[in-house]
C-alpha cells in the first residue's frame, strides 16, 4: 500500500489528528463571525489555551482537566476582546490583532517554568476490535477522544445554527444588528456569549497541540494554526461541514509536507506551507466573482460595531 514511502492509512490517520486544533478553533470563530463579530485573535487565544491547558494538566496530572483549563484560559482572554469591542466599541480588527500579540507574550511568560516538562498522556478511546480492521481501523477507530469531539462539535454547531431558535437569533444578530435590536434581542449579550464560546473552542484546540500533538511546551507552539483557522472559516464560506473538509485538506497538506520531507521528495517545503493560504485566496476570488455578498454567505454585519442609539 505504500506510495513513494508514504502509507496512505497512516497519512489519513495522522491528518485527522493534525487537523483537530484547526477544526476546533475554526468552529469557534465561525460561531463568532455568524454573530457578526470578527475576532482576529484566534492565534493568541489558541496559545493561551495551549499554556493554560498544559499548566492545568501538569498540576492536576489529569489531561481532561487540562483541556477544561485550556478552554477556560482562552475564554478569559476572549473576554478581554469582548469587553473592548462590545462595551467600549473598540475597532475589532485592531483589537483582535492586539489580542494575538498579547496572547503570544503572556503565554511565553506563564510558560517559562514549563519548558522541558512532559504532560500526562491522553489515551486513545478503546474501541476494541474495531481498531483491528485493516486500513479502516487505524483511520477511523484508533484515535484519542478529542478527534471524535471535534467531529461531533462540527455536527452540533451545524444543527444548532440550522435548526434551533438560538441559532436563528445568532444568525439574525450577525445579519443586521439594528433589526435584531428593534425586535428586542440583546445584541451585545448574544455577541459576548458567542465570543466566549469561540474563545473556549480555540482554547481546546490550543490545549490539544500542547497536550497531544507535540506534547510539550515551547514558545510559539501553535505556529500559525490560528491564522489557518481564520482562513478556513472564509474558505468554508461560514458552513460548519465545509470547515471539516477544509481543515482535513489543510491538515493533510501539513502532514504531507512532513511525510514528503521524510520520503526525500524534491518539492521545497515552503511551497506546501504557503499552499493553504494560496488556496484560501483562490477560493475567495472564485466565490466573490459569483453573485456578490449573498453567494459569499458572509454575515452582513460582520465586523461592524453595534451601538444602540436611542
Amino acid at each position: 500500500m505504500d506510495m513513494g514511502g508514504i502509507n496512505p492509512a497512516i497519512l489519513i490517520a495522522s491528518l485527522m489528528v493534525a487537523s483537530v486544533p484547526i477544526i476546533l478553533a475554526a468552529l469557534g470563530e465561525l460561531v463568532v463571525e455568524k454573530a457578526g463579530v470578527l475576532n482576529l485573535g484566534v492565534e493568541g487565544m489558541m496559545i493561551m489555551g495551549a499554556i493554560c491547558g498544559f499548566a492545568t494538566a501538569v498540576a492536576t496530572q489529569n489531561p481532561y482537566l487540562g483541556f477544561l483549563g485550556g478552554a477556560a484560559g482562552a475564554a478569559c482572554l476572549s473576554l478581554v476582546f469582548a469587553v473592548l469591542t462590545q462595551v467600549f466599541l473598540a475597532n475589532q480588527v485592531a483589537t483582535g490583532l492586539a489580542l494575538t500579540l498579547f496572547g503570544l507574550g503572556l503565554s511565553s511568560l506563564i510558560g517559562q517554568s514549563y519548558v522541558g516538562i512532559k504532560p500526562p498522556l491522553t489515551g486513545t478511546v478503546p474501541l476494541g476490535p474495531l481498531a483491528e480492521i485493516p486500513f479502516l481501523g487505524p483511520i477511523l477507530f484508533d484515535h484519542d477522544w478529542m478527534v471524535y469531539v471535534s467531529i461531533i462539535a462540527c455536527g452540533a454547531v451545524w444543527a444548532v445554527l440550522k435548526y434551533t431558535r438560538m441559532g436563528l437569533v445568532l444568525r439574525a444578530v450577525g445579519e443586521s444588528h439594528d433589526a435584531a435590536h428593534a425586535l428586542g434581542y440583546k445584541v451585545v449579550r448574544i455577541r459576548v456569549l458567542a465570543i466566549l464560546f469561540g474563545g473556549a473552542l480555540a482554547g481546546l484546540g490550543g490545549a490539544y497541540i500542547s497536550l497531544v500533538r507535540v506534547p510539550q511546551w515551547t514558545d510559539g507552539i501553535t505556529a500559525g494554526a490560528g491564522w489557518i483557522a481564520l482562513a478556513i472559516v472564509v474558505f468554508a464560506s461560514w458552513k460548519p461541514w465545509r470547515i471539516l473538509l477544509g481543515a482535513y485538506l489543510f491538515g493533510g497538506i501539513t502532514v504531507l509536507q512532513l511525510n514528503l520531507q521524510a520520503a526525500g521528495a524534491r518539492i521545497p517545503v515552503e511551497y506546501l506551507s504557503m499552499s493553504p493560504y494560496l488556496i484560501t485566496i483562490l477560493v475567495l476570488v472564485i466565490m466573490s466573482s459569483g453573485k456578490g455578498k449573498a453567494a459569499l454567505n458572509a454575515p452582513a454585519a460582520l465586523g461592524q460595531n453595534f451601538h444602540a442609539s436611542r
Binding site: 436563528l168 444568525r171 439574525a172 445579519e175 443586521s176 439594528d178 433589526a179 435584531a180 428593534a182 425586535l183 449573498a294 454567505n297 454575515p299 452582513a300
Partner: peptide, 12 residues
C-alpha cells in the same frame, strides 16, 4: 425602515 434580515427566509 424594515426590521428584516435579507439573508434569512420569510419564515425565519
Amino acid at each position: 425602515h424594515f426590521s428584516l434580515f435579507e439573508a434569512l427566509s420569510v419564515a425565519e
